[in-house]
Write a protein that binds this DNA or RNA. Structure first.
Length: 570
RNA sequence: CGGGGCGUAGCGCAGCCUGGUAGCGCACCUGCCUUGGGCGCAGGGGGUCGUGUGUUCAAAUCACACCGCCCCGACCA
């Protein structure tokens, strides 16, 4: 394409609105423009890049037997009510009414729709397995859109869904997706991690996330450099550090002591001169309206996701101050497990076999010492603790680190949640009904581009991996008004077109500096500069990533380019 | 939803405190000049000052309300 005819609105200065680097460069490079909070127009360059990403995704999905469909973005409320997610999705779902007042929503994911198709059409075990996918716009009314294309209200997702007869079939479908996702992200040139993940409101058992490490990310990943263990913090497990002080031996009875105006774990630690790990933390959480008492070691944090998962709750929140007073007769800061009869007591595993610890006394301004789990109160033990940096890896004992990351893909074993709730059944070989088992798998298309920019950029702009760059090469005549340069550049361009190479001809009447700056900014992997070396029948070939330039004979230039594009070297 | 910040030309900003003429840089248009890293010179176009109400002889400027955007937190299949 000829640059002089294109709409590529690059900017010299960066926009004050943009903080993260990918957002700045997408705006500056003329890739995107914002329409509203979390709503963006994708201009020529972004669209070309996104189409290339989608094509890679399509090829890899087809390679595992995926069948591409296009499901409606506009969904009637009924299917969502059947699965129960009409309520669960809450304010995150865009809702609207038609002219008759019927409830509709914009699809944020498509388990309901595919399940409704499947139950209407799939009749026999002979029709399974199935892998269905689509590449489609999703809508989510995020509480806080941010960071350019990283968290938006409308975005493109590749979502796929599998139907299998049994768990072994699902395992296979899951593995196929796992492998396909690796191929996709490899081909897109990303450096990524695969981590164990929490299934969240999707339901289901096993789940992995594909993430790119980045400070712009919002996911926290616990990982072990020694053995490779990596998991989303919502899911991660670890061996906690030992308590800072050994518990007093002996069979003491709980004993009150006065702690005026001492509310926090830190206050009590300072007052008693005992480490925080010698205390028990009492948290009152309300899960789907039912309060529970959660006990943790004083220096540990609760993982609300783990609590939510083990209670099978859709909503978990801390109790309000008045609810706490009604339940305990004391306020937060003086709560404890001793004598609690009216609600479940859940304790983290780190409290097992501990003795003579400190907790609140359920009387304002008083605490208890010599509280022993299992003797002075009887909790149910679960893994409730959120992993902290420095904890020991459960596999190898190495120290875990916690890093920020951007989620680019997520695969789930759904199990029977949707097929059961929506009544999907087929007849088996023996004539009995079978409920198929499902999986669901998603890739955020824009996030691949965004992550590539976050990972690969320098002071001059983006450095895009060739497979996802909007153009493979830019041909830059230093002075297009010069007839020899013009004819040569036109010829090279025509040769590229003929060779099927995505070429951009910078035929603008601009000074060379402007052309070079723009080419660098928008991240085109290769540049062929047509200038004074034409005297020796040479042009200059340069790589955006390595910044290395070399002189190439004019008649060899396109072959050279072709070798570079198909090769590994950038 | 809580906290903070910001809305003046396409972009980046000044002007507001102390009311009276809307300004700068970049970008854009025309001409000349220049052509290997965002040249130079000259001329020029472009504004409901986010919206509304109020105060005032007079509002970008003061007051109130609303809307929008960004950041932090809550939240986040």
């Amino acid at each position: 394409m000829r640059w002089s005819t294109l709409f590529i609105p690059t900017l010299r200065e960066h926009s004050a609105e943009a903080e993260v680097i990918s957002h700045q460069l997408l705006l500056r490079g003329g890739y995107i423009r914002q329409l509203s909070a979390g709503i963006y127009s994708y201009l020529l360059l972004a669209q070309r890049s996104l189409l290339k990403i989608q094509q890679i995704v399509r090829e890899e999905m087809n390679a595992i037997g995926g069948q591409e469909m296009l499901l409606p973005a506009l969904n009637p409320a009924e299917v969502w009510q059947e699965s129960g997610r009409w309520e669960i999705m809450g304010d995150n779902m865009f809702r609207l009414k038609d002219r008759f007042g019927r409830d509709l929503c914009l699809g944020m994911t498509h388990e309901e729709v595919v399940t409704s198709i499947a139950r209407g059409e799939l009749r026999s075990y002979k029709q399974l397995p199935q892998i269905w996918y689509q590449i489609q716009t999703k809508f989510r009314d995020e509480p806080r859109p941010k960071s350019g294309l990283l968290r938006v209200r409308q975005f493109i997702m590749k979502d796929s869904y599998t139907f299998d007869l049994d768990a072994a079939g699902l395992d296979l479908a899951y593995q196929k997706h796992y492998d396909a996702y690796r191929h996709i992200f490899d081909r897109c040139g990303l450096e990524y991690m695969i981590v164990e993940a929490h299934s969240g409101a999707m339901g289901g058992s096993q789940s992995h996330e594909f993430v790119v490490r980045s400070d712009a990310g919002e996911d926290f990943i616990a990982r072990c450099a020694a053995c490779g263990y990596a998991a989303n913090l919502e899911k991660a497990v670890s061996r906690p550090a030992a308590p800072a002080l050994l518990d007093p031996e002996g069979d003491y009875t709980p004993e009150e002591f006065h702690t005026p105006n001492l509310k926090t774990i830190a206050d009590i630690a300072a007052f008693t001169k005992l480490p925080e790990s010698s205390q028990m933390k009492s948290l009152v959480m309300v899960a789907d309206g039912i309060p529970v008492l959660v006990m943790l070691r004083g220096d540990h944090q609760l993982s609300e996701t783990k609590l939510q998962g083990l209670l099978h709750a859709t909503d978990v929140r801390p109790a309000h101050p008045q609810e706490i007073i009604d339940l305990f007769g004391a306020s937060a800061g003086s709560l404890g497990p001793v004598g609690v009869k009216n609600l479940r007591i859940l304790a983290d595993l780190a409290l097992q076999r501990r003795r003579n610890m400190i907790s609140g006394a359920n009387r304002d301004d008083y605490h208890l010492k010599n509280v022993t789990p299992g003797e002075d109160f009887n909790p149910e033990y679960f893994d409730l603790r959120q992993v902290a940096a420095g904890d020991a890896c459960v596999n190898c004992g190495g120290a875990l680190e916690i890093v920020k990351a951007i989620e680019i893909g997520h695969i789930f074993k759904l199990g029977y949640k949707y097929s059961e709730s929506m009544g999907l059944r087929v007849l088996g070989e023996d004539g009995k009904e079978i409920t198929p088992i499902m999986g669901s798998y998603g890739i955020g298309i824009e996030r691949i581009l965004t992550c590539a920019i976050e990972l690969y950029n320098d002071k001059d702009g983006m450095v895009l991996p060739p497979p996802i760059a909007p153009f493979s090469v830019v041909i830059t005549p230093v002075n297009y008004a010069d007839s020899l340069q013009r004819e040569t550049a036109d010829l090279l361009y025509a040769q590229c077109v003929k060779a099927g190479i995505d070429a951009l001809l910078d035929d603008r009447d601009e000074r060379p500096g402007v052309k070079f700056k723009d080419a660098d900014l928008i991240g085109i992997p290769y540049r062929i500069t047509v200038g004074k070396k034409l005297r020796d029948a040479k042009v200059e070939f340069s790589s955006r990533r390595t910044r290395i330039s070399e002189d190439v004979q004019l008649h060899e230039a396109v072959d050279h380019l072709r070798r570079r594009i198909s090769g590994i070297a950038l």
